[in-house]
C-alpha cells in the first residue's frame, strides 16, 4: 500500500493526473447516483382515455405549432407548414417520433433520424392521440414484423423472396446493401442498416417523407416481413469478400484501388528504385 501511494504520489504532477482524477470522480458520482436514486415509478395500468389525454398534452407542447392544435395541419402560402395528421394513424407517429425524425430538429429538405426526444410511453401516448383523430394504420404487432415469427423451416425461402421484393421495390433508392442513396433536391433514402424491424415495417406501411406507401394490397404483411427478414440476413451474414468499403458499390472500390493499390505500388517502386546495387565479392567474408 505504501508502495502504491508512493507511486501514485510520484505521478501526481503527470499531465494525465488531472483527467484521471476527474474520470474517477465522475465514475464515483454516477455510480452512487445509480445505486441510491429511487427507481422510476412504473405505472402502465392507465386506461386508453388517459393515454389519449396524456398524448394530447404532449401534442400541444411538442407538435401543435406546425400541425395545429387538433392535428388539422397549418397551411402557409408555400404549402403545408405542417401537414394534417387526421388519418395518418398510430404507425406513422410511432415511426416519425420513435426514430427521432419528429419533432423536426430544423427545417430542411427532409427530417433526419436524430436524437430521440420522447420515451416509449410518451410515443405511445402521442400515437394514441393522433389515432383518435381519425382511423389510420395501427402500430404493427411483433408477430407482424419480426422475422423471428416466421417458422424455422420457412425462413430461408422467406429470405429469398424478401430479397426479390427488396431488389424490385427498395434498392433503387436504398442501395443494394441498404446503405442508403441520394434523391433529388437534397433529399435522400436513409440507410436501413441497424433500423429496427418495427420501424422498417411502419415506413413501408405509412410512406414517411419521400417514401412511397407500400400498402398491404401492394406488399402483403407477410411480404413486408420477408423483406425485413432479408434485411436482417444482409446484416447478419458475414462479409464474405473482406472489408465492405462502405457498401457503396464501384465508387468506393475505385477509390480503394487508387489509394491502397496504386499507393502501395508506387511506394514500393520508390523503395526499389532508391536501392542501389550492392556487390560483394565472392568469398570476401571467408
Amino acid at each position: 500500500m505504501r508502495l502504491l501511494t508512493a507511486r501514485l504520489s510520484a505521478r501526481r504532477r503527470s499531465r494525465f493526473a488531472g483527467p484521471v482524477v476527474l474520470m474517477f470522480a465522475l465514475l464515483l458520482t454516477g455510480g452512487l447516483y445509480t445505486a441510491l436514486s429511487p427507481a422510476s415509478a412504473d405505472d402502465a395500468t392507465s386506461s386508453d382515455t388517459d393515454t389519449v389525454a396524456k398524448g394530447r398534452e404532449l401534442f400541444l407542447v411538442g407538435c401543435s405549432t406546425c400541425h395545429g392544435k387538433n392535428g388539422e395541419g397549418v397551411d402557409s402560402t408555400t404549402g403545408w407548414y405542417g401537414p394534417p395528421l387526421v388519418g395518418v394513424g398510430a404507425a406513422s407517429v410511432d415511426f416519425q417520433v420513435g426514430t427521432g425524425r419528429m419533432p423536426l430538429a430544423a427545417p430542411g429538405p427532409q427530417g433526419a433520424d436524430r436524437r430521440h426526444v420522447y420515451t416509449d410511453e410518451e410515443v405511445e401516448a402521442l400515437a394514441a392521440f393522433v389515432a383518435s383523430l381519425g382511423p389510420g394504420p395501427v402500430v404493427p404487432s411483433e408477430e407482424e414484423y419480426s422475422p423471428d415469427a416466421i417458422p424455422e423451416d420457412e425462413r430461408e425461402e422467406a429470405i429469398v423472396r424478401g430479397g426479390e421484393f427488396f431488389r424490385t421495390n427498395c434498392t433503387a433508392c436504398h442501395n443494394f446493401a441498404a446503405s442508403g442513396g441520394a434523391l433529388p433536391g437534397g433529399k435522400y433514402a436513409p440507410t436501413l442498416q441497424g433500423v429496427e424491424p418495427k420501424h422498417v415495417y411502419e415506413a413501408m406501411l405509412t410512406g414517411p417523407q419521400q417514401m412511397p406507401v407500400f400498402s398491404d394490397e401492394v406488399l402483403k404483411p407477410e411480404e413486408k416481413r420477408q423483406i425485413i427478414a432479408y434485411l436482417r440476413n444482409l446484416e447478419e451474414s458475414p462479409a464474405y469478400g473482406g472489408a465492405q468499403l462502405g457498401s457503396y458499390g464501384p465508387v468506393s472500390e475505385g477509390m480503394a484501388a487508387w489509394v491502397f493499390g496504386i499507393g502501395a505500388c508506387v511506394a514500393f517502386a520508390v523503395w526499389i528504385a532508391s536501392h542501389t546495387a550492392r556487390s560483394t565479392r565472392k568469398g570476401a567474408k571467408a
Binding site: R167, T171, A172, C173, A182, Y248, G249, W258
Partner: peptide, 10 residues
Amino acid sequence: EVTAGSQPDW
C-alpha cells in the same frame, strides 16, 4: 430492377 450506387468501374 436497379440499385442506388449503380456506377461503372472507376
